[in-house]
């Protein structure tokens, strides 16, 4: 990665985290569906990034979110988990033709259906960790799992919309 690319990623990081803290935090539907759009930063990182770096990035992003959410450790654990699983999952669902000419695992570079298959399981795990840790155990299992499921749908929806708005061809590339 060259330095202009690094700078671009830092900018995207700031935008994701700021939008999570300032807007997405208050975006709750029916007391069930929460929007954790900041996790999209990790999902949309370029493919070339090393496994160690992505772990550290996930950990750090989780820490910043935790400070604002007063839930020290929760988002860190969840982000570290999906940062670890991302390369494995990317390997498992390699599209036909591999990742040649693919910069980042986004709707722009691949396809909408591929992105959904990629993002939803990871987000589901992320949110499951967040909500079960927050609930402090498995009592209220069905209430929590419904929260996880609906939040995954909402977050994916927001991420797809964001990509059509900002990651469209030619704007950032």
């Amino acid at each position: 990665m060259n330095s202009s690319n690094n700078f671009k990623q830092i900018l995207i990081w700031v935008l994701f985290v700021a939008s999570q803290i300032l807007f997405a935090q208050n975006f709750v539907l029916y007391n069930r569906a929460f929007c954790f759009v900041y996790a999209g930063f990790l999902l949309l990182l370029p493919l070339g990034i090393s496994r160690n770096n992505i772990l550290l990035l996930g950990f750090f992003t989780g820490l910043v979110i935790d400070i604002f959410y007063n839930s020290l450790g929760t988002h860190m654990a969840a982000m570290t988990l999906i940062a670890f699983l991302r390369p494995i999952w990317l390997n498992a669902i390699t599209p036909r033709g591999g990742y040649e000419n693919v910069d980042s695992p986004s709707v722009k570079d691949l396809s909408l259906s591929w992105f959904l298959a990629y993002a939803m399981p990871l987000l589901f795990l992320h949110l499951a960790v967040v909500f079960f840790v927050e609930a402090g155990g498995f009592h209220m299992f069905f209430y929590v799992i419904s929260k996880v499921f609906l939040s995954t749908l909402l977050t994916v929806l927001v991420l797809v919309i964001l990509q059509y708005l900002f990651y469209s061809k030619g704007r950032f590339a």
Partner: peptide, 29 residues
């Protein structure tokens, strides 16, 4: 990568447990 993952998860787990105590530093909230 796996060992870094384990280390980071242990750190976050430790923080989750400790954060629920009544006494905690005010830097991280």
């Amino acid at each position: 990568a796996f060992f870094i993952f384990l280390l980071l998860e242990v750190i976050s787990g430790w923080m989750i447990v400790n954060h629920n105590d009544y006494i905690s530093a005010s830097y991280f909230n």
